[in-house]
């Protein structure tokens, strides 16, 4: 069989446009998922039942659903609820943020639990409030401990974004798919897509390794 790699160079800008969308989606989902995940993760540790139960329900609900179903939910349900279409990108961003938040939340819960109770007592006895203690002492330390797990999860988010393909969002995989429909060069295109995913994800996991090695405080 003979390869025709020109299909890549001929459609390079189109494909890169898709990759940019993938990156945008991944970055917003990671930032949003992490922010929401910190709140939900703290909620999972709350002694207030009216915070603990909703946070736990949310995490269990999301973690028992296939991502693709969550993407469908937001794509089809949200417009029905708010009465107007919201577009593929927005609905994908919302779906990924909420879905990934449940995974980030569990990483954060474990990370916060890894910090000794004495740190909270020290902060309290200096007159800090719960929120200040979290902000200045617990979360910065916890984040450092959980960095490897967070990066691993970020890599997963990056890969997961390819599922936005199902609602027609023109991300990286979908772009390759469109080119393929026109040029019929599946093997070259999907090998290229795989290579790009490999390069991005492998570099991220290398960074993660480095961070794991130099864990602990200077």
């Amino acid at each position: 069989m003979n390869f025709e790699w020109q299909v890549i160079s001929n459609n390079f800008f189109f494909l890169m446009g898709g990759l940019v969308t993938t990156f945008e989606l991944a970055l917003i989902a990671i930032a949003g998922g992490l922010t929401l995940g910190i709140l939900v993760g703290m909620g999972r540790l709350s002694k207030f039942k009216f915070i603990y139960y909703p946070a736990t329900l949310f995490v269990n609900l999301m973690r028992t659903q296939p991502l693709i179903l969550v993407i469908f939910w937001f794509y089809f349900l949200v417009p029905l609820i708010i009465g107007r279409p919201i577009g593929g990108f927005t609905s994908a961003v919302i779906a990924f943020t909420i879905f990934e938040a449940s995974y980030f939340a569990e990483i954060i819960r474990a990370g916060i639990q890894s910090i000794s109770k004495g740190q909270m007592e020290a902060a309290y006895s200096s007159g800090f409030t719960y929120w200040q203690a979290m902000r200045y002492f617990i979360i910065p330390q916890a984040l450092k401990n959980m960095m490897p797990s967070l990066i691993t999860q970020a890599v997963v988010v990056f890969q997961d974004t390819s599922l936005a393909y199902v609602i027609g969002l023109r991300e990286f995989l979908r772009s390759a798919n469109i080119v393929d429909a026109r040029e019929m060069r599946s093997v070259e295109l999907y090998l290229f897509v795989g290579l790009v995913y490999f390069i991005v994800c492998f570099s991220m996991s290398r960074i993660c390794k480095k961070l794991e090695l130099k864990k602990g405080y200077a």
């Binding site: 000794s116 004495g118 740190q119 007592e121 020290a122 006895s125 200045y136 002492f137 910065p140 330390q141």
Partner: peptide
């Protein structure tokens, strides 16, 4: 308050 295990902020 001063603690048995110091509880300084390590970061």
């Amino acid at each position: 308050m001063v603690f048995q295990r110091f509880e300084l902020y390590p970061h």
